[in-house]
Design a binder for these strands. Structure first.
Lengths: 199, 199
DNA sequence: GCTCCGATTGACTGGTCAGTCAGCCGACCG
DNA sequence: CGGTCGGCTGACTGACCAGTCAATCGGAGC
């Protein structure tokens, strides 16, 4: 066995943690499960991380910062508000189709776990809501969106709809295929922007 | 101290559990916390319930069955599809404004806690999604809603938007007053049915 | 070959709690 | 007044597991 650079062991532990957290949930995974999955000794987890919590925090922060960057980038582009929302929805859906286990962990264990990690990361999470609200507000200013809906309200509805969709996929309540993912990007924006009633 | 009928003690424990779960979350609530809050002995909790889990299950089932009944009732009325959705949204929002602690517990600890209680109650939870989807499908059949959106998809978006709103209130991300509650009922249906773009 | 030092190991400890159980209390009955 | 019985009590136990740490390994440098 050739020696892997230490940094790779750290990565290996993080990747294994995703798999185990996705399979069993954060609370019912023991640190030994992570170590076993990674094929390393129990103590090594504590060589690279201060606590079991920190492993999850790291996974969340790593991914969420990408989401925040994606929203900012969309907002900064010169696309229409509707296109910006589509870009945001697409990024989230693509994140899921690219790495469902990681997104499952982030949503189930952090974003929707408001009494544990959700509370800790509330600032980062609501930062996403705020950025989306800014896109909506801009759309209202430009006359592209109705002005009688509070942007923060619209942002919550938009993000809530997406997250619920992902939850539906995660728990196999609705069909999940590449085609469904592609369709969903359009559909969620179409629903929020055009509404259910015929135009 | 006059003797309270036993059934009242049981109720007292359930009500105390709501307060403690809402304050500390299910996981960091010890059974002794519930007993203390209710002013009864530790063991009495186990006289009325088999486990700590069962206390939460009871709270959830009690409330969720009311929601399911409300959706069914709305669906059974001769109102328009849009009015039916309004009735559903109103019931959920009213439930929250009437007893925020109970709704917080149900949403945070069950509905959104997909790896623990959410998993257990998945059938009941998705039964609600299905009923909402049925309302949408009926609306499509009558030409009141666009036919190019899968009813289950629309149902998830609708419910997700509402739940995200409640989460926003619970964690004080958006203002929560009686006026906001009333406004929200209209707004969530308006957003989903009419869309963000001007008509 | 030898030393050094960070990487790696895994047995062990301390604290936490859910759930148990042996028995107490007080209302009611005969 | 003695007996019974269900509601009620709370100290105790067994299991679990995060986090510690002393010991070992093995590559790099001399």
């Amino acid at each position: 066995m050739s020696k892997a650079p230490p940094i790779e062991k750290r990565r290996q532990i993080l990747d294994s943690a995703v798999r185990v957290f996705a399979r069993q949930g954060f609370h019912s995974t023991r640190v030994s499960d992570i170590a076993d999955e990674a094929g390393v000794a129990y103590g090594l987890v504590y060589h690279y991380f201060n606590s079991k919590d920190q492993v999850l925090n790291e996974l969340f922060t790593e991914r969420w910062s990408l989401l925040l960057a994606a929203i900012e980038e969309a907002d900064g582009s010169d696309a229409s508000p509707r296109e910006k929302l589509t870009a945001v929805a697409a990024f989230i859906v693509d994140s899921y189709s690219h790495d469902p286990e990681l997104m499952k962990v982030i949503i189930v264990e952090v974003t929707r776990a408001a009494n544990s990690f959700g509370r800790t990361h509330l600032p980062e999470i609501s930062s996403a809501y705020d950025s989306i609200a800014r896109i909506v507000a801009e759309g209202q200013g430009a006359g592209a969106f109705r002005a009688d809906i509070d942007p923060h309200f619209a942002s919550m509805a938009f993000y809530g709809a997406i997250e619920q969709l992902l939850s539906g996929w995660i728990f196999e309540l609705i069909p999940a295929s590449d085609a469904d993912y592609d369709e969903a990007k359009e559909l969620v924006v179409g629903t929020i922007c055009d509404g259910l009633e015929p135009r």
